[in-house]
Amino acid sequence: MANLKELSKHAERLTGGHRLCAGCGAGAVARQTLIAAGDTPVVVVSATGCLEVSTSVFPYTSWKTPFFHSAFENSAATCSGIEAAYKSLKKQGKIKDEEIRFIAFGGDGGTYDIGLQSLSGAMERGHRMLYVCYNNEAYMNTGIQRSSATPKGASASTSPVGKVIQGKEQPKKDLTAIMVAHNIPYVAQSTIGNWNDYVTKVQKALNTDGPTFINVMTPCRLGWGCKPEDSMEMVRLAVDTCIWPVYEVVDGVYKMTMKPRGGEKKPVTEFFKHQTRFKHLLKPENAELLASIQADVDAKWNKILALCGEK
């Protein structure tokens, strides 16, 4: 487990002065990832999205470590090219024997959807890199459109609540399982509100010789409709309600790394009631829909418990 006194000894590599909203989880993801890396040299790339546009607005950049962005759907391919350049130049003796780690960021839009092919290719090719999906469950940068990470029932601007449809009709895609199916050495889910879980996983991933993937649930206070100060607590509630199981898969072996606080699974409404994207689900006329969502969460939780050998 990580220790804040130790982590705080290294120089900060993400400055303030970026333009993310107050209370945005993405800024915390970038910071905690870099903090986890300690003083290891890291090169960072990002898909187009909130994190990228807000942290690098010419002539200002928050990155004190090498940072590159080119487009939306290619964060993983971009990281591949840099890792390949590193291997080539190192092999030829054109750069010294320094260990550099490569980190790619993408939101759920850039990862689950438009960048999935690029991610799959990079993972299959085996580049030594950490891909971090900061997952806030919708396309927040363009104005809260649904993504394949948006959960069933959530209201988004392209899956709105109307007279005949109550938010997104499809359940979210299990991208983490898809990454596990790539047989890469390290895959994990975490949340940005559980710093020790997340930082520990980043450290494990960076120490893994091969492609690694972390899906980190990250609040978007605008898209979720919650209070900025509640950002971190919000994603902890996702763990308490088992909506977002927190686990890791090391060489194919699943392990639960966090359980609901107090040992008791809370009803999904404990997560929903703080967020305007779910408020329609709490109305009496949507009781049936809510029950079906709870049933889905229960089934998936049982499945993950079984995978983790907890059942």
Partner: peptide, 16 residues
Amino acid sequence: GLLEGGTAENFKTGPW
């Protein structure tokens, strides 16, 4: 459009 690292330190978001 190359930028030297960390220039956002000079951008003040305090007034927000």
